[in-house]
């Protein structure tokens, strides 16, 4: 009976929080330096299971001289593969 269907959806990151712990912007939005969400401003997860905008966490890690810690739980930051 049906022929074609154009459906509407919104996409979301599968994350355990709504906002990025660093920039406090929504994950589904983008970090303050970006214009476009999604592919252009992706999320990354650490082994501690916290996640951030990639640009945010990279900036944070670059600013840490000695230890690279997760800003949320202070464990060593390792990117989750």
């Amino acid at each position: 009976m049906n022929q074609g269907w154009t459906a509407v959806a919104t996409w979301h990151w599968v994350a355990n929080d709504e906002n990025c712990g660093i920039c406090r912007m929504a994950f589904d939005g983008c970090c303050p330096d970006c214009k476009l969400p999604g592919d252009d401003c992706p999320l990354v997860w650490g082994e501690c299971s916290h996640c951030f905008h990639i640009h945010c966490i990279v900036k944070w890690l670059n600013s840490q001289q000695v230890h690279q810690l997760c800003p949320m739980c202070r464990q060593d930051w390792k990117f989750k593969e």
Binding site: M1, G4, W5, A7, V8, T10, W11, H12, V14, W45
Partner: peptide, 21 residues
Amino acid sequence: LKGNRTLQWKSHLGLMNIDIE
């Protein structure tokens, strides 16, 4: 296709092209 992302459907929106027999 897109890792770690999922969809939330707005089921009332959209357009269906249907044939009714």
